[in-house]
């Protein structure tokens, strides 16, 4: 039940309209960060307020919502956000990727391929991919306007010069539709290929920084690289200790005082489906 003191989905209608207009402009200019009048939410900044505002502006009673953090449905913040929407938006929730119409995520893209009609909402801490190279918003805005991305190329090249490879593991920058360099949010680079020409709509919300951006379905998303140093994703020698998957992103756990390691799927729904449905493990 929605609390009568608050509007449906918490935000007032005027705020929703403002966010909805920003979302449409974000879809029209893929990868460009649209400034929006972000509101204080009842959860702290940095804990998903951007994603929550985007979800609150799009969600309706017909939706089925899935919320994940680190790929898992049962991490505390995912539970907290899912509980929030179940309460304020009277919405059905699920842990199943294939059943969800809206998936709000922090730090992962589900392993189960997404389909047309699904919306993936990313929580974004720092939306500006150039921020760690140039702290000034006025500067980075100009760099995007001029499509002047040399500073990023130099940074990646320096990494190769020092380490022999691009040493960025997560939040690995991408080029969207050949025009804007975009932060995919702090997902592991393992997930970057899933963003490319995805049939689902990707919406990115940064609450504290007050930016919304989007990647429409079937839009080219290229991870930055060099001809002689092509983009590559993480691999493990181990497989998931629970479902045996060799294809999924693995979390590492330290299981005893001697520092023994164990690897399990980060995507809990994917892992559970493989364990309960043998055919899914094919």
């Amino acid at each position: 039940m929605a609390d009568d003191a608050y509007n449906y989905a918490y935000l007032d209608e005027q705020t929703k309209r403002m966010i909805r207009r920003a979302i449409l402009k974000a879809v029209a200019v893929p990868g460009y960060q649209v400034p929006f009048g972000g509101r204080e939410m009842p959860l702290p900044y940095g804990w998903g307020t951007g994603g929550i505002q985007v979800t609150a502006a799009i969600i309706g009673r017909d939706d089925t919502l899935k919320v994940i953090d680190q790929g898992a449905d049962d991490t505390t913040n995912a539970v907290s956000i899912r509980r929030f929407f179940a309460k304020v938006a009277e919405v059905a929730t699920t842990t199943r990727t294939d059943e969800a119409t809206v998936i709000q995520t922090r730090h992962r893209v589900p392993e189960t391929p997404l389909r047309e009609g699904q919306i993936l909402v990313f929580q974004v801490p720092i939306p500006e991919p150039l921020r760690m190279l140039e702290p000034r918003e006025t500067e980075t805005r100009t760099l995007h306007a001029l499509s002047e991305y040399g500073v990023m190329q130099v940074s990646l090249y320096e990494s190769i010069a020092r380490h022999g490879r691009i040493s960025k593991g997560y939040n690995y920058p991408v080029m969207v539709n050949g025009r804007y360099i975009m932060s995919p949010s702090p997902i592991p680079k393992f997930d970057n290929p899933k963003l490319d020409r995805s049939p689902a709509l990707q919406l990115y919300g940064a609450g504290r920084e007050k930016r919304i951006y989007a990647v429409p379905p079937y839009t080219p998303v290229k991870s930055l690289d060099f001809d002689d140093h092509p983009f590559e994703i993480e691999t493990w020698e181990q497989c998931c200790a629970l479902c045996g998957s060799k294809e999924s992103f693995l979390d590492e756990m330290i299981v005893d005082d001697d520092g023994k390691h164990l690897f399990v799927c980060s995507d809990t729904d994917y892992c559970e489906r493989r364990r309960t449905l043998p055919e899914a493990a094919e």
Binding site: K16, V27, I58, G60, R61
Partner: peptide, 15 residues
């Protein structure tokens, strides 16, 4: 609720 449904249709069309 009507605005939400309409918006989703518009978002679907735009994307």
């Amino acid at each position: 609720h009507d605005a939400q449904q309409l918006f989703r249709a518009v978002l679907d069309a735009t994307s």
